[in-house]
């Protein structure tokens, strides 16, 4: 009985999360969607995204903050030792989260041109 109740509550939570997540995705503007797609393509820091999208820094950074707040991207400081070895300050890299990738699928349906952005060659 207890297990069933727990299962139902978990299911309810997941469904609710997915529903809210989908709604959140739909609410993303084209610019935010473009930035999310850019991050997903492997452009991992602010100025790189600015170069690719042509958007100004005053747009890119607040959009990244919002995506990070909504859990669609995650920012992480690179290892200090790598930056030290290369004699440069450490960078904060962004990557899409699982929720972000799921949102992107829906967003590409809404903004089909986003698909034309090709991933970075590594």
């Amino acid at each position: 009985m207890v297990h069933t109740a727990r299962f139902v509550s978990i299911l309810e939570f997941v469904v609710l999360e997915c529903y809210i997540g989908m709604n959140e995705n739909v609410k993303l503007s084209h610019t935010a969607a473009l930035i999310l797609r850019t991050v997903d393509c492997g452009y991992r820091y602010g100025f790189d995204i600015m170069d690719v999208t042509g958007l100004p820094s005053g747009t890119v950074y607040p959009a990244l903050r919002r995506l990070e707040r909504d859990g669609l991207v995650a920012g992480k400081w690179e290892d200090e030792s790598i930056a030290l070895a290369e004699e440069r300050p450490a960078r904060r890299y962004y990557r899409t989260t699982r929720a972000g990738r799921q949102s992107l699928v829906l967003l590409i349906e809404r903004y089909p041109l986003l698909e034309k952005l090709t991933p970075v060659q590594k």
Binding site: F47, M50, P56, S57, G58, V60, Y61, P62, R88, P89
Partner: peptide
């Protein structure tokens, strides 16, 4: 710092320096 290491800025190209300043102003919006 990373953007300032662009070869155009190292050469002292005014347009690139101006672009760097414009990018810095984005910090205010952020």
């Amino acid at each position: 710092w990373h953007q300032s290491r662009a070869p155009e800025i190292e050469k002292g190209e005014l347009r690139s320096i101006w672009r760097l300043y414009c990018s810095s102003f984005g910090s205010l919006a952020d």
